Computed example of a mutant assay.
Amino acid sequence: MLRGETVYGTMIQHATNPALVDFLPPGALDFVIFTAEHNALDIADFLPLRYALAAKGIVSLARTHSRDPDDVSKVCDSYDGVVVPYVEDVAHAKRLAAAAVYRPLKGAALERVLKDDKWPNARTKQYCFEERCANTLFIPMIESVEAVDNLEEICSIPGVNAVFVGPNDLTTSMGIPNEYDHPDFVAMMKRIIEIADRKHVPAGSWFGTVEQQQRTMKQGGRFVVYSNDSSMMKDAIQLAFGQMRKA
């Protein structure tokens, strides 16, 4: 992403068996996002698969249940980075980013950094931001009109590595729920990508169709999140057995 390249990933929401990595085509995935937001699993359930993916050179991000900074720190201690849902307030976004990339700084010392950019000393700043958290990814989800209105400030926060659109929530906020091909949503994606690009932050969205992803990539989207484990299995089964039953 730092080189301006496009990265490709998917969401994992049901698979936990580490043997899954044996069935992944080489070079297909740069990253996965483990999500326990819409199911009964916990982020810890994905840890065996997370380490198996690491052996294949695939980055593992985790989407938090909550929007609490303490949960962000906890996730970042075990995964390569964090994806936080529904980030729209700039002050809150700064605290979430700090929880990811300023670890383990807390309390009054962290407050002085957030308020005045005053670190205990240069060594502490180097340790937190340039050593311990240097490879930690913090990715806020843009899922409301207010978030888009605040996007330039959000992209200016130290530690924001990419922005990730949740199209279901964003279209609902826009008054066009799930209309991912609506001209207003297509225009909104273009606006998001252009704002993020000006801050050298890659942007992208989740989509369940290749065509929608390709459209967003043509707009300049570089953080590509296509479908999820269960949906891709469903699509493959439906296609194969549908063709056989027709025959």
Rank of each mutant, 00 (worst) to 15 (best):
1 M>W: 03
1 M>F: 05
2 L>S: 07
6 T>D: 05
9 G>H: 14
10 T>K: 00
16 T>Y: 03
16 T>G: 06
18 P>V: 00
21 V>Y: 01
21 V>S: 02
24 L>R: 00
26 P>A: 13
27 G>C: 10
27 G>I: 05
31 F>R: 01
31 F>K: 01
33 I>N: 02
37 E>V: 02
41 L>G: 04
42 D>Q: 10
46 F>I: 01
46 F>R: 00
52 A>W: 03
55 A>C: 12
55 A>P: 09
60 S>K: 02
72 V>S: 02
73 S>M: 15
74 K>H: 14
79 Y>H: 03
79 Y>A: 05
87 V>P: 03
88 E>L: 08
91 A>K: 13
95 R>M: 15
95 R>V: 12
97 A>N: 02
99 A>F: 08
105 L>A: 09
105 L>T: 06
106 K>V: 11
112 R>A: 15
115 K>D: 14
116 D>Y: 14
117 D>T: 04
118 K>P: 14
118 K>W: 15
119 W>R: 11
122 A>D: 15
122 A>H: 10
126 Q>W: 13
133 C>T: 11
136 T>K: 11
138 F>K: 12
140 P>D: 04
141 M>I: 05
143 E>I: 03
144 S>L: 13
152 E>N: 04
153 E>A: 13
154 I>A: 07
155 C>W: 00
161 N>E: 14
163 V>S: 04
163 V>Y: 02
166 G>R: 04
172 T>D: 15
172 T>P: 10
172 T>Y: 11
173 S>K: 08
182 H>W: 06
182 H>Q: 04
182 H>D: 13
184 D>P: 04
186 V>S: 01
187 A>R: 08
199 K>N: 09
199 K>E: 09
202 P>L: 12
204 G>R: 04
207 F>K: 05
208 G>I: 06
214 Q>K: 14
214 Q>V: 14
217 M>L: 11
220 G>C: 11
226 Y>I: 01
227 S>G: 05
229 D>Y: 02
230 S>C: 11
230 S>W: 04
230 S>G: 13
231 S>R: 08
232 M>W: 01
233 M>Q: 12
238 Q>C: 01
244 M>A: 12
244 M>C: 05
245 R>T: 11
246 K>A: 09
247 A>F: 11
